[in-house]
Design a protein around this nucleic acid. Structure first.
Lengths: 139, 139
DNA sequence: GCGATTATATCGTAAAGTAAGATATAAATA
DNA sequence: TATTTATATCTTACTTTACGATATAATCGC
């Protein structure tokens, strides 16, 4: 087994054991859209459409429904009134968190069981990987 | 910001930048079921129902549809013929991989940019966290 | 200013997905 | 053999997802 394969084994095991219990009925597409709004600055409806590979009108309908569910807010860009500026609501941030992050309670429990040096190891590794991942996807 | 909060920031950034592009239209429930089959040995239909919080008949229909899509196979337990034994097909494993793992190409690219000591750091950290996560959810 | 372009929205429609209640079956258990 | 356990099926209802066609309103090029 290669290094990346092994790392993915670890990765999926960590998520499987530490994720939040699934409460809300939420679709993959909705989670993806919330992620895009969270991670990319100033995404509009068209950006979403191309990222999740659907037509512009479908993306627009998605956004409409997500706003109805109070997970996003919509304003118009003051510099270009054609453009929409989407933002996560507190609820949206919460839903996104529960569907993509590790359960803070479980994670805290695991962290508490680590020695100080191990804690540092984990933090450094995650920081390193997230930094390199960011710069990688830019290039 | 607390340690777990910071770690989750790293975690979601890593996934956002390194995940596979979304090809197939697949629902959350299907991914969850594939995960259960992958990570838990000998899950039956009832186990799935309680894990994803739906009724037994709904779980059974889910399984039926997933089998129709050739993502799972079904046999009967030879020791207890009432029980179903589910297994991932190669396609199922592939779909699960593309929807929960990090893109091996992107990950490899990031890993290649690391020093040997950094590689070791990342591997150790992930191994450590996955081990502790497993034993944590048992207790 | 005016036509073209860009960004988004809406309507109609169709297909697929999700879920549960009621009921059935077949194997194992007491 | 009656009961329990594990799963399956049928019906029904609602939601979600997606797209083509069309519309609107702001901005851009000239």
């Amino acid at each position: 087994m290669g290094t990346t394969n092994q790392l993915n084994q670890y990765w999926t095991d960590i998520y499987f054991h530490l994720h939040y219990p699934h409460k809300e009925k939420i679709s993959h597409q909705v989670v993806r859209i919330l992620q895009l709004v969270d991670k990319i600055d100033g995404v509009g409806v068209n950006d979403i459409a191309s990222h999740i590979q659907v037509s512009q009108n479908t993306a627009s309908e998605h956004v409409k429904r997500i706003i109805e569910k109070k997970l996003l807010t919509k304003e118009r860009d003051s510099l270009d009134e054609r453009k929409v500026v989407l933002r996560l609501t507190d609820l949206g941030r919460d839903v996104l968190h529960r569907n993509t992050s590790l359960d803070e309670e479980k994670l805290q429990h695991v962290i508490d069981g680590l020695e100080d040096s191990e804690k540092e190891l984990v933090e450094k590794a995650f920081q390193l990987l997230s930094e390199r991942a960011k710069s990688c996807s830019l290039s």
